[in-house]
Nucleic acid binder design. Structure first.
Lengths: 259, 259
DNA sequence: CGTCTGGTTGATACGACTCAAATTTGGTGG
DNA sequence: CCACCAAATTTGAGTCGTATCAACCAGACG
């Protein structure tokens, strides 16, 4: 999870180009690669908190890339129930190649005010045609995204409320750390207890009580949108967290050689 | 969900090349495309029921393609709990491009005796380099696989046991129908109640009671590994089933023109 | 035939939900 | 800078869905 000095020199904690550092968790990128990523990020827009980036039923026309802020993917049931099926933090792509599909089967919403790049199919094609290492890294990104989705399935299916919340907190902390948005057990944490409830399949009342338990056990502090994990190792332990699904061990580092 | 006549003419219910028909739910393939798919399916092996095709921790070396039988992806927790995170039916690819990753974060197991093709990275590269329509179709396959995983997340997070099981039965029925393995509300259904429990995050005792409810409500018959959905429309209704996530509407049909 | 796996039933327990209200926090305008 | 309001958090009491534990039964199989 080390961050290339070239990048980290430029950025302060909590800001800066997360995309490159996210992809560089997989493979080292050349400065040309980084320039190309910056290029496709030029065309961006802001989406207010609690608004949709794109809604279920819409025709997808771009790949979205989260430059700043938090977002989520969610699905709604006819009876009004809502499930957040994934969370986006800076550096996350929302569905590489979605535009193949005719219509969105879920919505993408902003948790905080969101800065998202809109990348056209043509730009994506050019990017992958010209930059094989970015292509590899994007595939890695896709595979990790799928692995996270599977882990959430496991989380909802088999873990208790306490384990489930613990697991989610650890995952988000590690994902933020990978893009230089977390350190020393601390990170921004803009999710409300309601959001947490929708993400974990619990009610917000029960989330509240369970967070209190986690605090009582001196595993976390969480207030004013700031998370502090007091004992990461123990929290990972009680939530049966296995980092393997995040594939954060620079698996593509052997690709560094070619230009 | 119509099946191209060219294919359906050749195959009997319950057997035949499922891959082509699965991909042709997205776009029409040329006979060259179909030949290429048959080529990469030459190298296959059988895996006995209840054995792993590949286990968590293993280094992935091939893309697996289910030629016949049912399989699943599952994850296990240190406390012994097990979650089936996805199911495979004939025609399903298991993780296009997995070999990018260093080690499997989950296991792939056989539910029934399984016939799986093992496709090398080289073969995959050749296939995608030479056959753009297959490449598109594989991307569609990936996107649908992800959509299914999201729907399972929703299923586990927000639906009751009754809805959850109903939803799963409908999904499997529709997926089997798409590869010509189901019709008239009937299909093979080799899952035990234990498997269903692991897939839905319930106990097998509760699965048993809930299936009885579904039978009592005259929605399904299920015995001797045969499923009969008596009233598909009503079952979809009570389980809040929205077919949109399966993207079965031949979205890539505009690609038919090129050779 | 005994054994095993998968299915079924019953009694009891508990984790998480529901509903309802109170309290705190954060943002906004006067 | 304070008053106000809406949103988010917290608390309490009671209920329900699903889990647990423990038998028992049926069919498949060697």
């Amino acid at each position: 999870m080390s961050v290339p000095t070239v990048v980290s020199r430029e950025i302060a904690f909590g800001s800066g180009p997360a995309v490159a550092s996210k992809l560089e968790a997989f493979t080292k990128l050349s400065s040309d690669d980084r320039t190309a990523l910056a290029q496709v990020s030029r065309n961006f827009r802001y989406v207010d908190a609690r608004r949709d980036v794109i809604s279920e039923g819409d025709k997808p026309r771009h790949v979205h890339l989260v430059l700043d802020g938090w977002g989520c993917r969610y699905k709604q049931l006819p009876d009004g129930k809502r499930q957040i099926v994934s969370l986006f933090v800076p550096g996350d792509f929302c569905d590489v190649n979605v535009y193949i599909l005719r219509s969105m089967d879920h919505s993408i919403g902003a948790i905080t005010r969101l800065k998202v790049a809109m990348i056209t199919p043509e730009e994506m094609n050019a990017l992958t045609a010209e930059r094989p290492r970015i292509t590899q890294a994007l595939w890695w990104h896709e595979l990790v995204t799928q692995a996270i989705q599977r882990e959430w399935t496991l989380n909802l299916g088999q873990r208790s409320a306490y384990e489930r919340l613990g697991h989610l907190l650890v995952e988000l902390y590690l994902r933020l750390a990978a893009v230089n948005r977390a350190a020393d057990g601390r990170c921004d944490f803009p999710l409300t207890q309601n959001d947490l409830a929708d993400a974990t399949g619990l009610t917000s009342v029960h989330v509240n009580r369970t967070l209190q338990e986690l605090r009582r056990d001196e595993l976390i502090e969480l207030e004013r949108k700031q998370l502090h994990i007091l004992d990461l190792e123990r929290l990972m332990d009680v939530s049966m967290f296995n980092t393997n699904y995040l594939h954060l061990d620079h698996e593509g580092r052997h690709l560094d050689a070619n230009a």
